[in-house]
Design a protein around this nucleic acid. Structure first.
Length: 363
DNA sequence: AATCCGTGGTG
DNA sequence: TCACCAAGGAT
C-alpha cells in the first residue's frame, strides 16, 4: 500500500515524538567557530574540509533536535498523509507562504483525494479551485501531473526522483522534496530556506546567490546525514529553521540552535554583496493577467471580451457576481493592446479554460 | 542565464 | 508607504 505509511520510520511526526533532549547539558561542548571565508562572494565552502566534517554530527543533532521541539504541525506532515497530498502541498508551496496554502490544500484533498479524482475533472476546475494562491499555471500543471500519474503510473505517485521530475510542474526541488518526505528517500532537498541557512551557517554570507549553483548542490549533498531517516528529518529541519529563525529579513539569531557555529555571525553579519532585484508588478502584463484571472474564476458563464473593456455599471449585469473583479480590472485602465496581450497570454497558457465555455475569445 | 509567471503579508 | 519576500518551474 504505497499510499499509507503510518508507521514509516522517516515520517516527520516520528521526529517530533523523538525527543533528543536538547538542553545545553546534553550537547557537545561548543564547537570551534569556523573561520569565515576571506572572500564573501563565493558560494560554498568545501564541506569535504575536515573541520566541517568533524562538526556535522553536532549540527545534525542540534538542528533536528530543535525541529523536534519547534516544528509547526502541518497536515502534510501527518503520518497518514498520502504521497499525493504531499505532492499537492509541495506544488502549492512553491513561492507561496504556508498560511495561505493551508485552506486551499484542505479543500483540494477533500475534493480530490487521489490523482485519479483530479484527473477526471476538466483542467479549468483545478484552476478555479486554486483560488488566489497565485501562479495559477501551477494548478494547470498539477492537473496535467495527475493525468500523467494515472496514465503512466497506474494512479500511484512515482516514488523516485527521476520519476517525479518527469511530472509537469515538478522541478528539482519538488522532486527531491516528495521523494524524501513522501517516500523516505535520502535526497538533497534545496529550497530557498535551505540555501539561506547554508549561505549563512557554512559560507558566512548574508544571502545565497541569485541562482542556485552546482557548488550549493554539492554542499547540500555533503551536509546530508548518511542515514535515510535522519536525512529526511534534516531536510525538513533545515527548511523549518530557515522559515522560522534564519529568515531573510530579520533573522532571530538569538533563538538559533547553531548560532555559535554560524560563519555569518562570526564574521559580524556582513551585509549582502548584492541587492536583490524586485519583482515588477504595477503596470505590468502580470497585473492585468491577475485581474483577468479574478474575473474568470468567479464567472460561471462565458465572459464576452467586451466585458473586459467596458465599465461594469454600463453592462447592466454587475449582479452576476463578477462585478467587483470587473471593476478592479477596469480600474487598471490599461491600454487596449496590453489587455489583448494579457488575454493572448492566458490562452497560450491554457488558463482561460476555467470551465467549459467559461471564456470567450475577443473577436 | 535571464525573465516571466500571481498574490498578499510585512518590515 | 513600498519594496521585498514566499517549500520554484519553464523557457
Amino acid at each position: 500500500m504505497a499510499g499509507r505509511c503510518g508507521q514509516a520510520p522517516w515520517r516527520l511526526t516520528q521526529a517530533i515524538n523523538y525527543s533528543v533532549g536538547i538542553d545545553a547539558s546534553t550537547l557537545a561542548p561548543a564547537m570551534p567557530v569556523p573561520t569565515a571565508p576571506a572572500n564573501g562572494a563565493s558560494g560554498a565552502t568545501p564541506a569535504s574540509d575536515e573541520r566541517i566534517a568533524g562538526q556535522l554530527p553536532v549540527l545534525h543533532e542540534r538542528i533536528t533536535g530543535w525541529f523536534a521541539e519547534t516544528a509547526r504541525k502541518l497536515p502534510w506532515r501527518e503520518p497518514d498523509c498520502s504521497p499525493w497530498g504531499i505532492l499537492v502541498s509541495e506544488v502549492m508551496l512553491q513561492q507561496t507562504p504556508v498560511v495561505r496554502v493551508l485552506p486551499v490544500w484542505q479543500d483540494w484533498l477533500e475534493r480530490w483525494p487521489t490523482p485519479a479524482a483530479l484527473a477526471r475533472e476538466p483542467a479549468g476546475e483545478a484552476v478555479r479551485h486554486w483560488g488566489r494562491l497565485g501562479y495559477p499555471r501551477r494548478a494547470l500543471r498539477l492537473h496535467a501531473a495527475a493525468a500523467a500519474i494515472v496514465s503512466e503510473h497506474g494512479g500511484q505517485v512515482p516514488g523516485t526522483y527521476t520519476g517525479l521530475l518527469d511530472l509537469p510542474g515538478v522541478g528539482s526541488y519538488t522532486a527531491a522534496a516528495v521523494a524524501a518526505f513522501a517516500f523516505g528517500r535520502r535526497e538533497a532537498v534545496v529550497d530557498t530556506n535551505i540555501r539561506r541557512v547554508h549561505a549563512r551557517l557554512m559560507s558566512g554570507v548574508a544571502l545565497p546567490a541569485p541562482s542556485l549553483s552546482a557548488a550549493e548542490m554539492r554542499l547540500a549533498a555533503e551536509l546530508l546525514p548518511d542515514d535515510d531517516g535522519t536525512s529526511v528529518r534534516w531536510n525538513a529541519a533545515v527548511m523549518e529553521l530557515g522559515a522560522l529563525v534564519c529568515t531573510a529579513r530579520a533573522p532571530k539569531c538569538a533563538a538559533c540552535p547553531v548560532q555559535d557555529s554560524c560563519a555569518w555571525l562570526a564574521a559580524g553579519e556582513p551585509p549582502p554583496s548584492y541587492t536583490p532585484k524586485g519583482q515588477a508588478w504595477h503596470g505590468t502584463d502580470r497585473q492585468v493577467r491577475g485581474a483577468l484571472m479574478a474575473v474568470l474564476r468567479l464567472a460561471d458563464s462565458p465572459v464576452p471580451a467586451e466585458m473586459f473593456q467596458q465599465e461594469p455599471a454600463d453592462l447592466g449585469f454587475a449582479a452576476d457576481g463578477i462585478g467587483v473583479p470587473l471593476s478592479a480590472l477596469h480600474r487598471l485602465n490599461c491600454a487596449p493592446e496590453q489587455l489583448e496581450r494579457a488575454l493572448a497570454g492566458l490562452l497560450d497558457d491554457g488558463l482561460a479554460e476555467l470551465r467549459q465555455g467559461g471564456y470567450r475569445l475577443p473577436s
